[in-house]
């Protein structure tokens, strides 16, 4: 088994990170289309989307049956499965893999849920290091308003209710999201994230992302799509 390290495959692994509601999916969609127009082969993959485990996670969440450790392990299983079935084959074929969230999301969430940071980092030791990580950052208050509007309300796990932060759903949500933000901030240095100000207009953010990607795209080993 290979413990976390940089890959030598011809493709590139580009990660878009950030908390809930920060606009990752919108930016991902725009990036994927642009890359295709520019003639690059693109594969997309999202957090919690493997055929193997997604339904088990959703069912468990419905029943609120997850504890800190099973929560961590299920998401790690999901990534392991996607690495094997989607990410690795694409990188080997010289494609650009756009990942909507990566193990940094687990590092933030699981630690806020009380998992040992060293344990979580080691847990994901099987995963490849990305070539570039964009961290979409937004201040807490606008972020909270955005999550509530786009989701049409608050979600049990997104509010950290499973860890009993507060019985007041909004307070719990605010506390949970602020702790998640704090974890991301800490990681920005640790993992060399490219921090993107996500409170700007969609087109501005997209322009910045494309500019940052230029260096990576000049690599001759990439397959054209």
């Amino acid at each position: 088994m290979e413990l976390s390290k940089h890959h030598n495959y011809p493709g590139k692994l580009i990660v878009l990170e950030g908390t809930d509601g920060v606009g990752r999916s919108t930016q991902m969609e725009l990036l994927a289309n642009w890359l295709a127009v520019e003639g690059y082969g693109v594969t997309r993959t999202s957090w919690k989307s493997s055929g193997l485990i997604t339904r088990a996670i959703e069912k468990a969440k419905e029943k609120n049956a997850l504890n800190t450790i099973t929560f961590s392990l299920l998401y790690a299983t999901d990534l392991a499965e996607r690495l094997n079935s989607i990410i690795l084959p694409a990188l080997k074929a010289g494609l650009i893999v756009l990942a909507d969230r990566y193990y940094y999301t687990a590092f933030a969430r699981d630690v806020v849920r009380g998992a040992d940071p060293a344990w979580v980092r080691k847990l994901y030791g099987f995963a490849l290091e990305p070539d570039l990580v964009f961290y979409m950052k937004m201040p807490l208050e606008p972020l909270l308003r955005r999550i509530i509007t786009t989701r049409g309300g608050l979600d049990f796990y997104e509010s950290g209710r499973d860890i009993g932060m507060s019985t007041d759903l909004y307070q719990s949500f605010k506390l949970y999201q602020s702790q998640i933000l704090y974890e991301f901030e800490q990681m920005a240095d640790e993992f060399g994230f490219k921090t993107i100000d996500a409170s700007r207009p969609i087109e501005d953010i997209q322009r910045t992302l494309r500019k940052e990607l230029k260096d990576i795209l000049s690599d001759k080993s990439l397959a054209s799509g």
Binding site: M1, L52, N67, I69, T70, L73, L74, A76, T77, A80, E81, N84, F126
Partner: peptide, 19 residues
């Protein structure tokens, strides 16, 4: 299943029963 996924699935089963 690859060995790592196999490993993680069993660890999840174990964690659930442990708790």
């Amino acid at each position: 299943l690859i060995p790592v996924t196999f490993s993680l699935l069993h660890a999840t089963d174990f964690a659930d029963r442990l708790e």
